[in-house]
Protein backbone atom coordinates (compact mmCIF):
# COMPACT_ATOMS: atom_id res chain seq x y z
CA UNK A 1 0.00 0.00 0.00
CA UNK A 2 1.30 3.41 -0.92
CA UNK A 3 1.55 6.38 1.39
CA UNK A 4 -1.23 8.32 -0.22
CA UNK A 5 -4.46 8.73 1.66
CA UNK A 6 -7.05 6.12 0.71
CA UNK A 7 -10.50 7.40 1.56
CA UNK A 8 -13.34 5.11 2.54
CA UNK A 9 -16.57 5.95 0.81
CA UNK A 10 -20.07 4.63 1.21
CA UNK A 11 -22.21 4.65 -1.93
CA UNK A 12 -25.98 4.47 -1.93
CA UNK A 13 -27.55 3.12 -5.11
CA UNK A 14 -31.10 2.65 -6.23
CA UNK A 15 -32.21 -0.80 -7.26
CA UNK A 16 -33.32 0.17 -10.77
CA UNK A 17 -30.78 2.50 -12.32
CA UNK A 18 -27.57 3.13 -10.47
CA UNK A 19 -27.16 -0.35 -8.96
CA UNK A 20 -27.66 -1.74 -12.45
CA UNK A 21 -25.14 0.78 -13.72
CA UNK A 22 -22.69 -0.65 -11.19
CA UNK A 23 -23.60 -4.15 -12.37
CA UNK A 24 -23.04 -3.07 -15.95
CA UNK A 25 -19.67 -1.56 -15.08
CA UNK A 26 -18.84 -5.00 -13.71
CA UNK A 27 -20.18 -6.96 -16.65
CA UNK A 28 -18.23 -4.71 -18.98
CA UNK A 29 -15.11 -5.09 -16.79
CA UNK A 30 -14.65 -1.34 -16.43
CA UNK A 31 -12.09 -0.51 -13.76
CA UNK A 32 -12.73 2.09 -11.11
CA UNK A 33 -11.38 3.11 -7.74
CA UNK A 34 -12.03 0.43 -5.10
CA UNK A 35 -12.67 2.83 -2.24
CA UNK A 36 -16.44 2.82 -2.59
CA UNK A 37 -18.63 0.26 -0.81
CA UNK A 38 -22.19 0.15 -2.05
CA UNK A 39 -25.49 -0.17 -0.30
CA UNK A 40 -28.56 -0.98 -2.35
CA UNK A 41 -31.82 0.81 -1.68
CA UNK A 42 -34.97 0.41 -3.69
CA UNK A 43 -34.94 4.08 -4.62
CA UNK A 44 -32.80 7.12 -3.94
CA UNK A 45 -35.96 8.47 -2.28
CA UNK A 46 -35.41 5.88 0.46
CA UNK A 47 -32.24 7.65 1.48
CA UNK A 48 -32.73 8.96 4.95
CA UNK A 49 -30.16 11.77 5.46
CA UNK A 50 -29.29 10.22 8.79
CA UNK A 51 -27.81 7.28 6.86
CA UNK A 52 -25.27 9.72 5.45
CA UNK A 53 -24.49 11.15 8.86
CA UNK A 54 -24.16 7.67 10.30
CA UNK A 55 -21.75 6.71 7.55
CA UNK A 56 -19.65 9.84 8.06
CA UNK A 57 -19.58 9.46 11.80
CA UNK A 58 -18.84 5.77 11.43
CA UNK A 59 -15.62 6.36 9.55
CA UNK A 60 -16.51 7.12 5.96
CA UNK A 61 -14.65 10.05 4.40
CA UNK A 62 -17.35 10.66 1.81
CA UNK A 63 -20.76 9.48 0.71
CA UNK A 64 -21.93 9.08 -2.83
CA UNK A 65 -25.67 9.09 -3.44
CA UNK A 66 -26.77 7.75 -6.79
CA UNK A 67 -30.12 7.33 -8.49
CA UNK A 68 -32.01 7.37 -11.75
CA UNK A 69 -31.85 10.48 -13.90
CA UNK A 70 -34.50 13.10 -13.18
CA UNK A 71 -37.62 12.04 -15.02
CA UNK A 72 -36.54 8.41 -15.21
CA UNK A 73 -37.30 7.31 -11.66
CA UNK A 74 -38.80 3.83 -11.41
CA UNK A 75 -41.15 5.33 -8.85
CA UNK A 76 -42.01 8.26 -11.10
CA UNK A 77 -40.54 11.19 -9.15
CA UNK A 78 -38.95 10.01 -5.92
CA UNK A 79 -35.45 10.91 -7.03
CA UNK A 80 -36.52 14.56 -6.95
CA UNK A 81 -37.19 14.03 -3.28
CA UNK A 82 -33.69 12.64 -2.92
CA UNK A 83 -32.41 15.79 -4.62
CA UNK A 84 -34.29 18.01 -2.19
CA UNK A 85 -32.91 16.14 0.80
CA UNK A 86 -29.44 16.20 -0.67
CA UNK A 87 -29.49 19.99 -0.97
CA UNK A 88 -30.75 20.37 2.58
CA UNK A 89 -28.21 17.87 3.83
CA UNK A 90 -25.40 19.91 2.36
CA UNK A 91 -26.49 22.88 4.44
CA UNK A 92 -26.64 20.72 7.54
CA UNK A 93 -23.13 19.46 6.85
CA UNK A 94 -21.87 23.00 6.47
CA UNK A 95 -23.40 23.78 9.82
CA UNK A 96 -21.61 20.81 11.33
CA UNK A 97 -18.31 22.03 9.99
CA UNK A 98 -17.99 19.32 7.38
CA UNK A 99 -17.15 20.16 3.79
CA UNK A 100 -20.39 19.66 1.88
CA UNK A 101 -18.32 18.31 -1.03
CA UNK A 102 -17.93 15.11 0.94
CA UNK A 103 -21.40 14.15 -0.20
CA UNK A 104 -22.04 13.88 -3.89
CA UNK A 105 -25.17 13.15 -5.89
CA UNK A 106 -24.78 11.29 -9.17
CA UNK A 107 -27.49 10.32 -11.63
CA UNK A 108 -26.70 7.16 -13.56
CA UNK A 109 -29.09 5.18 -15.72
CA UNK A 110 -28.90 1.40 -16.02
CA UNK A 111 -27.06 1.88 -19.29
CA UNK A 112 -24.42 4.19 -17.84
CA UNK A 113 -21.89 1.77 -16.41
CA UNK A 114 -19.11 3.90 -17.81
CA UNK A 115 -20.50 7.00 -16.16
CA UNK A 116 -20.84 5.20 -12.84
CA UNK A 117 -17.23 4.05 -13.00
CA UNK A 118 -15.91 7.47 -14.03
CA UNK A 119 -17.93 9.35 -11.40
CA UNK A 120 -16.79 6.95 -8.71
CA UNK A 121 -13.14 7.36 -9.59
CA UNK A 122 -13.53 11.13 -9.82
CA UNK A 123 -15.24 11.29 -6.43
CA UNK A 124 -12.49 9.24 -4.80
CA UNK A 125 -9.97 11.77 -6.12
CA UNK A 126 -12.05 14.68 -4.84
CA UNK A 127 -12.22 13.13 -1.38
CA UNK A 128 -8.52 12.29 -1.51
CA UNK A 129 -7.83 15.98 -2.03
CA UNK A 130 -10.08 16.92 0.89
CA UNK A 131 -8.20 14.52 3.14
CA UNK A 132 -9.53 12.27 5.92
CA UNK A 133 -12.68 13.37 7.68
CA UNK A 134 -11.46 12.21 11.09
CA UNK A 135 -14.99 12.04 12.37
CA UNK A 136 -14.97 9.05 14.60
CA UNK A 137 -11.34 8.36 13.82
CA UNK A 138 -8.05 8.91 15.58
CA UNK A 139 -5.73 11.47 14.17
CA UNK A 140 -3.79 8.78 12.37
CA UNK A 141 -6.95 7.74 10.59
CA UNK A 142 -7.60 4.61 12.67
CA UNK A 143 -11.08 3.99 13.94
CA UNK A 144 -11.68 4.72 17.59
CA UNK A 145 -13.45 2.24 19.76
CA UNK A 146 -17.16 2.00 19.31
CA UNK A 147 -17.81 3.78 22.58
CA UNK A 148 -16.09 6.85 21.24
CA UNK A 149 -18.38 7.26 18.29
CA UNK A 150 -20.85 10.03 18.69
CA UNK A 151 -19.36 11.97 21.61
CA UNK A 152 -16.10 13.85 21.68
CA UNK A 153 -14.67 12.61 18.43
CA UNK A 154 -16.04 15.28 16.11
CA UNK A 155 -13.11 17.22 14.72
CA UNK A 156 -13.67 20.44 12.93
CA UNK A 157 -11.66 20.75 9.78
CA UNK A 158 -9.60 23.95 9.91
CA UNK A 159 -10.91 25.16 6.56
CA UNK A 160 -14.46 25.14 7.83
CA UNK A 161 -13.76 28.09 10.10
CA UNK A 162 -13.39 30.30 7.10
CA UNK A 163 -16.71 29.29 5.65
CA UNK A 164 -19.79 31.29 6.35
CA UNK A 165 -22.45 29.22 7.95
CA UNK A 166 -25.78 30.24 6.41
CA UNK A 167 -28.01 31.97 8.87
Amino acid sequence: MTDQFEPTIIGFTCNWCSYRAADLAGTARMKYAPNVRLIRLMCSGRLDPTFVLRALSGGADGVMITGCHPGECHYIEQNYKALRRFLLLKRVLTGLGIEPERVKLVWASAAEGAKFAAETTAFVEEIRKLGPLCWGKDEDGRMKDDEDIGNSSIKIHPSSFEKEVPA
Binding site: E6, P34, N35, I39, M42, G59, G141
Partner: peptide, 25 residues
Protein backbone atom coordinates in the same frame (compact mmCIF):
# COMPACT_ATOMS: atom_id res chain seq x y z
CA UNK B 1 -39.82 -4.25 4.95
CA UNK B 2 -36.72 -5.55 3.23
CA UNK B 3 -34.99 -2.20 3.52
CA UNK B 4 -35.62 -1.17 7.12
CA UNK B 5 -33.64 1.49 8.95
CA UNK B 6 -32.19 -1.23 11.13
CA UNK B 7 -30.99 -3.21 8.11
CA UNK B 8 -29.41 -0.24 6.37
CA UNK B 9 -27.80 1.19 9.49
CA UNK B 10 -26.39 -2.23 10.31
CA UNK B 11 -25.03 -2.53 6.79
CA UNK B 12 -23.37 0.89 7.06
CA UNK B 13 -21.73 -0.14 10.33
CA UNK B 14 -20.69 -3.47 8.87
CA UNK B 15 -19.15 -1.91 5.78
CA UNK B 16 -17.17 0.46 7.99
CA UNK B 17 -16.10 -2.23 10.45
CA UNK B 18 -13.15 -0.81 12.28
CA UNK B 19 -10.45 -3.43 11.94
CA UNK B 20 -10.66 -3.41 8.15
CA UNK B 21 -7.69 -1.87 6.44
CA UNK B 22 -8.55 1.11 4.24
CA UNK B 23 -8.65 -0.06 0.66
CA UNK B 24 -7.27 1.79 -2.33
CA UNK B 25 -5.59 1.42 -5.65
Amino acid sequence: TGFSNEQINAQIDGLLMKNLEPVGA
